[in-house]
Design a protein around this nucleic acid. Structure first.
Length: 193
DNA sequence: CAGGTCAATGAGGACT
DNA sequence: AGTCCTCATTGACCTG
């Protein structure tokens, strides 16, 4: 199986935004940002350092939804590398206004999704293999049956000495060789030269 | 409301 | 001992 790259077909990846931070202004990133300017570029939800959404009784904080642009950037860097070293993680996090831990978690989940997709594709592939092998097996079985039906009785071998049929299991050499051997035995020693 | 998605959490293993 | 990973799971949120 070839290496399955499943990061294709990601909407927005064809963006001209260069990979190495080339010309992508973080100000342009958040498409979900409210029209009123001066808001944060990226929602940080519970992510923001030291700002642990306390308010309502000790439940999980509200779920963070990454913006399209955050996802796009994450996908883009995932496409380049499926794992991040600490420096890359730090850089990406500050660019996205996320905690490094969130970037790390995103990559972990992304790898898991990739693996799941690969497994599903492998599963499909194996199912198809199974199908065609089953078909091939059926075909061969039919062929065997046809050959069995055509088969004639095995030739009867007569003993050169008694002229009686010999069981094949009694043969130690083929009938022709055996005849030659017998002929040699009968030949007078003087004839040998 | 059921079921899907996905960020987040925790356990546990590998490595340095 | 600390870090990072995978894996299983949870729970908020979204959608039909």
């Amino acid at each position: 199986m070839g290496d399955l790259e499943l990061t294709m077909a990601i909407p927005g990846l064809s963006s001209p935004c260069g990979s190495e931070g080339g010309g992508c202004n973080p100000r342009d990133l958040d498409m979900n940002r409210p029209a009123s300017g001066g808001e944060e570029e990226f929602p940080t939800g519970s992510a923001e350092e030291g700002e642990e959404e306390e308010g309502d009784g000790g439940h999980r904080p509200k779920k963070l939804r990454l913006t399209k642009e955050q996802s796009r950037l994450l996908e883009e860097s995932f496409r380049q590398n499926h794992t991040l070293n600490p420096k890359q993680k730090e850089a990406l996090a500050s660019r996205l206004r996320l905690r490094p831990r969130q970037v790390e978690v995103w990559f972990q989940n992304r790898r898991a999704r990739t693996k799941l997709k690969q497994t599903e594709m492998e599963c499909e592939y194996l199912k198809r293999c199974f199908g065609s092998l089953t078909e091939e097996n059926r075909r061969l079985q039919r062929e065997v049956e046809e050959l069995r039906a055509l088969r004639v009785a095995p030739p009867t071998i007569l003993s050169p000495l008694t002229r009686q049929p010999m069981p094949a299991s009694a043969l130690t050499m083929c009938p022709r060789c055996q005849r030659l051997t017998m002929a040699n035995h009968r030949r007078p020693p003087s004839a040998a030269a």
